[in-house]
Computed example of a mutant assay.
Amino acid sequence: MSDKVNRTRRWVLLGGAAAIATGFAIREYRLIPQDYAGGQLDVAEAYKQAQSGDILLVDIRTPREWQATGVGDGAHPLDMRREDFVQALERLTDGNPETPVALICARGVRSARLSNQLTVAGFTNIIDVPEGMLGSAAGPGWMRVGLPVKSYKEDT
Rank of each mutant, 00 (worst) to 15 (best):
T62N: 05
T62P: 09
P63H: 08
R64I: 11
E65P: 09
E65H: 03
E65S: 08
W66K: 03
W66Y: 07
W66S: 00
Q67N: 10
Q67V: 05
Q67I: 10
A68S: 15
T69P: 02
T69L: 11
G70D: 08
G70C: 06
G70P: 12
V71E: 02
G72M: 08
G72E: 11
D73C: 00
D73Y: 08
D73I: 05
G74D: 06
G74T: 02
G74S: 04
A75F: 07
A75D: 09
A75N: 10
H76I: 15
L78A: 02
L78I: 12
D79S: 08
D79Y: 14
D79L: 13
D79N: 15
D79K: 06
M80G: 03
M80I: 10
M80N: 12
M80A: 09
R82Y: 03
R82L: 09
E83D: 15
E83G: 15
E83I: 12
D84G: 13
D84Y: 05
D84A: 12
F85A: 09
V86R: 13
Q87W: 07
Q87R: 14
Q87K: 13
Q87D: 15
A88V: 06
L89D: 05
L89V: 07
E90S: 13
E90K: 15
R91K: 15
R91S: 14
R91N: 11
R91T: 15
R91Q: 15
R91M: 14
L92I: 10
T93K: 07
T93V: 11
D94Q: 14
D94Y: 12
G95Q: 13
G95L: 10
N96Y: 08
P97H: 05
P97A: 03
T99C: 00
T99I: 01
P100K: 06
P100C: 07
P100S: 09
V101D: 07
V101P: 03
V101N: 05
A102E: 05
A102N: 10
A102D: 12
A102L: 07
A102I: 13
L103G: 05
L103I: 04
I104L: 11
C105V: 04
A106N: 14
A106Q: 13
A106T: 11
A106V: 04
A106R: 11
G108R: 03
G108I: 06
G108Q: 01
G108C: 03
G108T: 00
G108V: 00
G108L: 08
V109S: 08
V109W: 12
V109I: 13
R110L: 10
R110T: 12
R110P: 05
R110C: 02
R110Y: 03
S111G: 04
S111N: 07
S111I: 08
S111Y: 12
S111K: 11
S111E: 04
A112M: 12
A112T: 12
A112I: 10
L114G: 02
L114C: 06
L114F: 15
L114H: 09
L114Y: 14
S115W: 07
S115K: 13
N116L: 01
N116Q: 01
Q117K: 13
Q117L: 11
L118H: 03
L118S: 09
T119A: 14
T119L: 06
T119E: 15
V120I: 14
V120G: 04
A121L: 08
A121C: 04
A121T: 01
A121W: 07
G122I: 04
G122F: 02
F123T: 02
F123Q: 10
F123G: 05
F123Y: 06
F123W: 04
T124F: 00
N125Q: 03
N125K: 03
N125L: 01
